[in-house]
Amino acid sequence: MYMDMDRGELRFFSEAQSALMESVLNQIIPSDDKYPAAGNLGLVAYIDKVMFDPIYLARHDKSLRRIFIEGMHQIEICAANKFQGAFVSLVSDQQIAVLKTIEEELPEFFNALITYTYNGYYTDYRILKICGAPTRPPQPLGHKLPDSDFSSTELVKSRGTIYKEVD
């Protein structure tokens, strides 16, 4: 998966865009004492991969690359207009203010940003381990569920039939 990829393998993001995206992703999912931040986890490489991989990219999302290019551009414009600096150079509160504006003004980009960030983050085995989810696909091992006690169906039966006889 993408975790094996290093920066040199990026096909879509330029070096500057990759740095921008890393800061953006660190704001979308920041770290706390249990979870790492999305940018630091390396999700830029994941989103880069999504841009070209038909398995990852929903087939109606062919315009995703265009949406991201425009979105990143608007982030920089907004950062410059609001705080006279490049996004990566802003302090955290300023970065959040920029992203809130983008969320309002460019919903299509922002939704895509969230979807693919969450898709990557919450299918990364390092994160699944932290949230107590299985770190393997559902098959071939499956899961275990204890047997259930169905004795209270007697209660349901004791209230009598509830279907209508018609014939």
Partner: peptide, 25 residues
């Protein structure tokens, strides 16, 4: 080929294993 035996099973469900023919295509 079903999604459940693949690492990216949850993602496959959003596209090539999606129940909407328009998405799966």
């Amino acid at each position: 080929d079903y999604a459940s035996a693949h690492d990216d099973w949850e993602l496959r469900a959003t596209n090539i294993s999606n129940p909407q023919p328009n998405v799966r295509n």
